[in-house]
Amino acid sequence: MQFTTPSEEQRLAVEVFRTFAQREVDPVASKYRHRVMPWAAAHEVQQMVAEFGLPGAAIPKANGGLGLSCATQGLLFEQFIQAGGAALPGVQDGIVVARLLLAAPPAIRERYLPDVIAGRKIGALAAMEPAQSLAQARLEEGYCLVTADEIRVANGINSDFVICPARTAAGPLALVVLDREAHRYEVRLDPAAGRFDAGATEVFSTRARVAPDHLLAHGDEAQGLLAAVRTQQWIHGGLSSVGLMQLELDEAIAHARVHEEFGRPMAAHRLVAARIAEMATRVESARLLCERCLALVDAGKDCETEAGMARWFAAEAAIGLQHQARQLRGVDAPEWVIPRRAFGDRAIETQKLAAAQMLTGISALS
């Protein structure tokens, strides 16, 4: 597979989006980094970002999107993260939700996709990761009775609907769309999670009678869509790590250029220079893994295994880079506000085990 440098059109799109994100996204992200964003503010941000292409950049024009490649959308998303977007998970989840709705039955696609692309509605994703507890479903007289108790959900508090996988008694998986108005689900912060962390500390509960027109997929089709959702989540989780690393690397380079030790710029000392080279290599290695996955998606190839590798590698690289940056910059280095659903020892270990299962066919998650 060949990699190409960004085209002039891609560079222009990235530059325009970078200017917008730094001016509009960063102030909002800083304000709500440690607390729940109010409903109105969350929807306002979603619509603001939608005007500049996310989450519909890679959705075909015929379906209301911009018709760009997933690779181009990845470039825009990294800029969004560098402008503080890691604290605003609705946009990242919106990208995944939009891709999932694109494959939905026409009635569901027409009901939700235009509003998601325009930022008028926020969709949440429940229990999409391996080893997470699933909701239970029972098919009865053409309806799907869904029961969910304390199921992990990303970005659910301000959501208008939740896409939820549910396990039926017979075993097959069902993917259902639960509408906040129609099904009255409840989302709250997990009291066991400690401090608020956007998109990672919310739990979801419902007992809903779901009509057939809200059943997105069932059986093998649902399993295939769930794999596609995980692939998109993992790729963009990796890009989140890349964006944060690039931001920290830029700060470290600037620090090493202007600060002196023993009468010389820090960058002139071999140990510091070697550390900066190591940090830059971490960033580029993680970025290349993510870009390869996006290229595979654009080519219509399955890349769930590669996406899992990209996500855990990027997260682990980001933790290592942060440690190096804090050593280099000392007290001048602020601690990141890292989304725990993408980082943390448990999340990384689970991701490694999931990747190993896809390679060996044997699960070590239980």
Rank of each mutant, 00 (worst) to 15 (best):
A126V: 12
A166Q: 04
S159L: 14
R152Y: 13
S159W: 08
F161E: 07
E140R: 15
I163T: 08
E110Y: 06
A137G: 08
G171W: 12
D160Q: 10
E129D: 09
N155T: 15
A131P: 00
R138T: 13
P114K: 10
Y143H: 15
V153L: 04
E150S: 12
R152W: 11
A124K: 02
A169R: 15
L125W: 04
R167F: 09
A131K: 13
Y112S: 02
A169S: 11
A148C: 08
A166N: 06
A169Y: 11
F161D: 04
Y143L: 09
R111W: 02
C144T: 13
V146Y: 13
R111D: 03
L125F: 08
G171R: 11
P130V: 15
R120M: 00
A131G: 01
E129Q: 03
D115M: 03
I163N: 09
G123H: 01
A169Q: 15
A124M: 00
T147D: 09
D149T: 15
I117D: 02
R152E: 12
L134V: 09
A118L: 06
A137D: 05
R138C: 10
E150H: 14
V146H: 10
N158C: 14
N155P: 06
I157C: 02
A137Q: 09
E140V: 13
P130G: 05
C164L: 15
P165L: 08
L125N: 00
L134K: 04
G119H: 07
I117N: 00
I157H: 14
L145M: 13
V162Q: 01
A137L: 12
A137M: 11
G142M: 02
E129F: 15
G156K: 12
E140G: 07
P165G: 05
D149K: 14
G171Y: 08
Y112D: 00
A148T: 07
A154L: 06
K121T: 00
A131Y: 02
Q132V: 08
V153H: 11
Y112L: 05
G119Y: 04
A127C: 10
I151T: 11
T147V: 15
A166R: 12
S133V: 14
P114I: 00
V146Q: 07
C164R: 03
R111V: 03
A127S: 13
E141D: 14
R111E: 01
R138V: 11
R120Q: 06
A170M: 13
R111N: 07
S133A: 06
D115T: 00
P114A: 02
I157T: 11
L134R: 03
R138Q: 15
A126L: 02
R167G: 04
I163K: 11
N155S: 13
I151E: 05
Q136A: 14
T168V: 07
A169E: 10
T147R: 14
R138K: 09
P130Y: 07
A124G: 09
E150T: 11
I157D: 03
A137N: 05
K121V: 00
Y112A: 01
A166G: 05
D160C: 12
S133Y: 07
A127K: 01
E140I: 08
P130N: 03
V146W: 12
G156Q: 08
A124Y: 01
N155R: 06
A170V: 07
N158H: 08
G119D: 04
A170H: 12
R120A: 03
M128R: 01
L145G: 11
L134N: 01
R120D: 01
I122L: 06
Y112I: 01
R111H: 05
A135V: 08
L145C: 13
